[in-house]
Amino acid sequence: MALENVNKHFGELHVLKDINLEVAHGEVVVVIGPSGGGKSTLCRTINRLETIDSGTITLDGEPLPAEGKALARLRADVGMVFQSFNLFAHRTILQNVTLGPLKVRKVPREEADKEAMELLDRVGIAAQAAKYPAQLSGGQQQRAAIARALAMKPKLMLFDEPTSALDPEMVAEVLEVMTGLAEAGMTMIVVTHEMGFARSAARRVVFMADGQIVEEAAPESFFTAPSSDRARDFLSKILRH
């Protein structure tokens, strides 16, 4: 996955400024930075929930399709996990996970159900399959959302602050699932401030502020000796808490 000279405006606001980023197969990249810096927008442009003004984004060497069926297919290949889970409230957990495979991939129901149960088992909530999202805790909902994204067998997974909306005691269970994915070789872009996860699972940390990639480094060197003032300033703020 590669972004080249990507620019994006919201009206006057220049949210992404000449972004260049490459992510190799099986690589895990953590994106970190102050709020409003454009991290969510970056994720959203990669599966084209937002359009870009200039530059190119390619997946497996192919530029992102602009619309129609090809775009839907691209989105199916890029899994996305949101801060607020966004499970379909009127469907059971199992139905949430099987919807994409049934309707987009046209997998037969029996197979879709079987694979969904395996995924739910893998994220540790197989027992909740028949429940509705509102009956689950935040951590369980987020794990269900991860299973829903995985059910599409994506080439790339995007996580936009997956643990920020969770109560502290539930953060670990979600990070554990993500660490497992990383170990299994999934290509991942993760927006998070969880330094533990960045240190253990990521190969690279990208520090983003004011719409720019300010610094890219291996996690250990980024957290212990950031080279830019912005990053140093930011880290001192989050470390104080």
Binding site: L49, K69, A72, R75, A76, L87, A89, G100
Partner: peptide, 20 residues
């Protein structure tokens, strides 16, 4: 967010209307 999640798993506009 649910409409976005529907698009993110590859549903078309009409599918996400009808199913979600």
């Amino acid at each position: 967010g649910q409409a976005e999640a529907a698009r993110a798993i590859g549903l078309t506009f009409f599918q996400s209307m009808r199913l979600v």
